[in-house]
Simulated scan of single mutants.
Amino acid sequence: MDNDFVVWFSKSFGLFYLIGLSIIILAYAYWPSNKKQFDEAAQSILGHEDKPHKDEPWR
């Protein structure tokens, strides 16, 4: 095995690896049963507060 073959193989394998990983991530993100989980996560960051915290004064 020479250096050119190793470079070619690693570039090719890396390309297919990243394409496959991207497809898996997209399938997971758009899977219908995960919608509730993602909606809850999106709303949890907002919390139930509608004004700044009173203990921390603005400087």
Rank of each mutant, 00 (worst) to 15 (best):
S22I: 02
D39W: 02
F16R: 13
P52E: 02
G14R: 06
A27N: 04
G20R: 08
K51C: 01
W58Q: 09
F38Y: 13
K11F: 06
F16H: 14
F16A: 12
E40K: 07
L21C: 08
E40R: 07
F13K: 09
N3E: 14
G14L: 07
A29L: 15
A41G: 01
K51G: 02
E56Y: 04
L46W: 12
G20F: 04
Y28E: 05
R59W: 03
M1S: 08
L21A: 11
Y28P: 00
S33K: 05
M1C: 06
S33T: 14
Y30C: 03
M1E: 10
L46Q: 10
F5W: 09
Q37Y: 08
Y30H: 08
N34L: 04
N34E: 11
L46C: 03
S22F: 14
S10C: 11
V7W: 15
S22L: 14
Y28H: 04
F9Q: 14
D50P: 00
H53S: 13
G47Q: 05
S22G: 13
G14F: 04
I24C: 11
F9K: 14
Q37A: 08
H53P: 00
I24P: 00
F5Q: 10
P52K: 07
I23D: 10
F16D: 09
I25T: 05
N3L: 13
D39L: 11
I19R: 15
